[in-house]
Structure formats: C-alpha cells, structure tokens
C-alpha cells in the first residue's frame, strides 16, 4: 500500500515536472487561443502617425492549415477576402471581382495595410519544432507573474527570425508578449496579448497589439469581439470557387 502511494506520488511529481519544461509551456501558450477549428469576428485597427484605419473582419480557421478572412466593414473594402490553404494565399478583390495569388516575393509585404505580413498568416507556427527553447527569467508583466523564454531557431528551421523572446503567464499559461528579433539581434516588432477574458468557453487574451519597432508610431490592434472554438466548418468554404462567390 505504502509502495502504491509512493508510486502514484512519483507519477504525479513527474507530470508536474513535465508541465514545467520550456517546450511544454510554449506549447500550452500556443494552444490556448487556437482550437481545432474556430470562428470569430474581430476588429483590426491600423494606427500610423498619419491616419487610423479600422476594419471589421470575420474569420474561419481549421487548425493552422486553412483560413478564410472576410472584411465586413467599412463598406469601401467590405467583401475583400483572404484565403489561406497551407503555404498559399489568395486575395479576392471585390471591386474588380478578381482573385490574386500572392507571389512568394510579396510574402513579407503588409497584409491589408496592417503591421502583419502575409507570411504571418502562412507561417506554420510550430514553435516547439522549430526553436530551441529555454527559460531565461521570471518576470512580472501587466501585474501577472510570467516566465520569460528565449527561443533560438534550430539550424535549418524555416524561420525568418533570429530570436524570439516569449512571455507566458504562470497563472493560466496564456501568452503575454512576444518580441521578434532579426539575425543581427535588432528588435523588429513586439506583439502584446492583453485583456484576458472568458470567450467561446475559454480564457483568452482578447486584445492583441502588433507594434512595428522599425516604424515609429505604427501598430496594429486586433480586438476579438466574438469567438467560438471547435465547431464544424464545412471544408468547401476554403476553395477558390467559394472565394469568388
């Protein structure tokens, strides 16, 4: 009996310890706001020193594989759609009623004029597979204790960054901040996850800010207004024919 208890205790301890590996922490943070499938409505605010532009969008995701994003407001751009299947992106343009496939050379260009790139949509963010991860510090961000992790790309990993710094909240394993560095160690951009709220049956950060560190005063804020996870999405909506409907 005693032996049984100590055995169970050992398993429990091992599990707890496993939950603490840097890889586990990042994996949990990455999974936290991604379901097998999801549907959401969000508002994207592109802020520059010269103007502020607000777009409202609707999106369907199947894992990281497929996505359809539709602009629903303002009227001038409503109807423009972005379709992602694997590594490819198509833009449907309502005005000319045409579909453009984004060429590889344009992947690092801005998506819909925001601080996100087409590449951000396409990139399969498999942090655990592509990076060597280690915990570098314990930090407090927005009043919450966090782990600060350093992600260095593995050799040959298909990654454009030289280094990532990743903050994960200790309380709920949610991402808090990601800093992107290039090969020279210069900070290129910062993503912040704010306003954790219960939505779609989960606790998720509902406000994301992507700050372009190379262009002063440029950032893009996404506010999730509605989200549902793990619902059935018919596969046919991710097709070129459907895109042009």
């Amino acid at each position: 009996m005693n032996r049984m208890i100590s055995f169970l205790l050992l398993i429990a301890l091992t599990a707890a310890a496993l939950g603490q590996t840097p890889e586990e922490i990042v994996q949990r943070a990455e999974n936290a706001y991604k379901g097998k499938t999801s549907y959401g409505i969000f508002e994207m605010k592109v802020v520059t020193p010269d103007y502020v532009r607000t777009l409202k969008m609707e999106s369907w995701w199947v894992g990281n594989e497929k996505a359809l994003i539709k602009i629903i407001a303002p009227a001038r751009e409503a109807g423009n759609r972005t379709l992602k299947i694997g590594k490819d992106i198509w833009m449907y343009l309502r005005n000319t009623e045409t579909t453009i496939r984004i060429p590889p050379s344009m992947m690092l260009q801005s998506w819909n004029g925001s601080d996100y790139t087409y590449d951000d949509l396409v990139r399969e963010s498999n942090a655990v597979r592509d990076y060597n991860i280690r915990i570098v510090a314990n930090d407090t961000l927005q009043g919450t204790p966090t782990w600060k992790l350093e992600l260095i790309p593995k050799p040959d990993a298909p990654v454009v960054w030289g280094k990532l710094l990743y903050w994960v909240r200790k309380t709920d394993y949610l991402p808090a901040r990601i800093e992107y560095y290039d090969e020279k160690g210069e900070k290129i951009r910062t993503m912040e996850f704010l306003d954790v709220r219960r939505m779609g049956g989960r606790n998720i950060p509902t406000r994301w800010i992507m700050r372009n560190e190379r262009k002063k005063g440029h950032y893009t804020e996404i506010v999730i207004q509605k989200i549902r996870f793990d619902l059935r999405i018919p596969d046919r909506i991710f097709s070129l024919r459907e895109l042009e409907r």
């Binding site: 103007y51 001038r76 751009e77 343009l93 045409t98 453009i100 801005s110 819909n112």
Partner: peptide, 13 residues
C-alpha cells in the same frame, strides 16, 4: 489587375 494601398491607407484594386 492592379492592387495598391492608397494615400488614405485603404486598399484599392
């Protein structure tokens, strides 16, 4: 088809 970002930031095709 020509897709540009206009002076006001909007995409125009």
């Amino acid at each position: 088809i020509v897709l540009v970002q206009g002076f006001d930031g909007f995409l125009r095709d």
